[in-house]
Simulated scan of single mutants.
Amino acid sequence: MHESGPSTEPQHPIGVAAERSGLTPDVLRVWERRYRAVRPQRSEGGQRLYSDEDIERLRLLRLATLPGRRISQVVKLSTKELARLAEEDTTARSRAGLDEPVPLRVAGEGVEQALARVRAYDTVGLEWLLRRMAAVLGLTPFIEAVAAPLLCRVGDEWHAGRMTTGQEHLTTSLVRRVVIAAIPGVEAPADAPRLVVATPAGERHEVGALFAAAAAIADGWRVTYLGADLPAREIAHVAAATGARGVALSVVSPREPGPILDEIRALRAALPAERFLIVGGAGAAGLAAKLREAGIAVAERLPDLRALKALLPDTSPTARSGAWMCRRRR
């Protein structure tokens, strides 16, 4: 009797694909966008549609990453090779007397586990979990699918009075530590374009800038990271001294947007025309119109840093998309 393989007809929306593959929609989008894990079709309305074959491949990729492999290591394998690898893993676990893959599930479950550790003030357990997820997912997917959503959830819980300021601060501190620790494992080529990342004077929230810097490094930029609250003249000086091709700024929640907008405009004026300036973060949305008027690119969320390279000479500023930081932050 002839058995056909999974259907190649695009028919399932992302929610169905996520449920059947065992991934969260966030992780699915990251794997699709950054690693081209699958290539779904689009409906007439622009909705992603996945085939049974796509879903089976995603399911196998998830299984391949559970024991600790990075998605970047296994995404190049064919679906048949992934199925063989999953079978080998199952056999190895059975021989070792293990019923399930070790610790990590998927990013969505990881975020829930991290929240439980935050509520319990379990700093050791939280840091271990975050480091594990960063190792398995890779730096940029970890930021987009775990770190940023976790900080958003903690921020929401703080606003609702269900978490303390101490819990919010310990989460931010550990996320920052894990991201910084993961950066040395990503090396840009010697001839990579240079980028300066900072927050402008008056913006003291650093994490969004750190996320942008880490993602840029992972995408092949040589980054000079300056941290928070830098005057325009200092940022411009560093950009000139390092030969940077551009500057990326993070703005989260300016209480007085006027002075920060003035700083950003001053930086644009201080930079040569051939150096791009892009501003992102939750606070960028409220400044977008005025920034674009000044010839400054705006990313309300973390740019796809492959697209960011399109801002190198001979391109005009434009909006970019992708996860940067949640809108609701203190």
Rank of each mutant, 00 (worst) to 15 (best):
Ala212Val: 12
Arg162Phe: 10
Leu261Tyr: 05
Pro259Thr: 04
Ala209Tyr: 03
Val186Ile: 13
Pro193Asn: 00
Met163Arg: 13
Ala214Cys: 07
Val175Ile: 08
Val178Arg: 00
Leu249Arg: 02
Asp229Pro: 15
Ala190Phe: 11
Gly220Asn: 05
Ile260Ala: 05
His159Lys: 14
Val178His: 03
Ile180Arg: 12
Leu226Met: 14
Ala215His: 05
Arg222Thr: 06
Asp229Ser: 11
Ala228Asn: 14
Leu226Ser: 02
Leu174Cys: 08
Thr171Ser: 10
Ile264Arg: 12
Val179Ala: 08
Glu234Phe: 12
Leu267His: 07
Pro272Thr: 08
Phe211Val: 09
Ala239Gly: 03
Ser250Pro: 09
Pro257Ala: 10
Ala248Lys: 01
Val247Glu: 13
Gly243Cys: 03
Leu271Ser: 00
Thr199Phe: 05
Arg204His: 15
Val175Ala: 03
Val197Cys: 01
Glu187Phe: 05
Glu168Phe: 14
Ala182Asp: 10
Ala240His: 15
Ala248Ser: 08
Gly246Asp: 04
Asp219Gly: 02
Ala248Pro: 01
Leu249Ile: 06
Val223Asn: 00
Val197Asp: 01
Val247Arg: 12
Ile278Gln: 04
Gly227Ser: 10
Gly166Ala: 15
Arg204Gly: 15
Arg204Gln: 14
Val252Thr: 15
Leu230Gly: 02
Thr172Ile: 07
Ala228Phe: 11
His159Cys: 05
Ile183Cys: 12
Leu210Glu: 05
Ile183Gln: 03
Ala188Asn: 05
Ala244Cys: 02
His159Val: 12
Ala239Thr: 09
Gly220Lys: 07
Ala240Thr: 13
Val197Pro: 10
Glu168Pro: 10
Glu187Asn: 02
Pro193Arg: 00
Arg255Asn: 14
Leu210Tyr: 07
Leu174Asn: 11
Ala213Lys: 03
Leu210Lys: 01
Val251Met: 07
Arg162Asp: 15
Ala215Pro: 01
Ala198Lys: 12
Val186Lys: 04
Leu249Thr: 12
Ile260Val: 14
Thr242Tyr: 01
Val196Asn: 10
Ile183Met: 14
Val238Pro: 15
Ala201Cys: 09
Arg194Ile: 02
Ala244Thr: 04
Arg222Leu: 05
Pro254Val: 07
Ala216Met: 10
Ala241Asp: 15
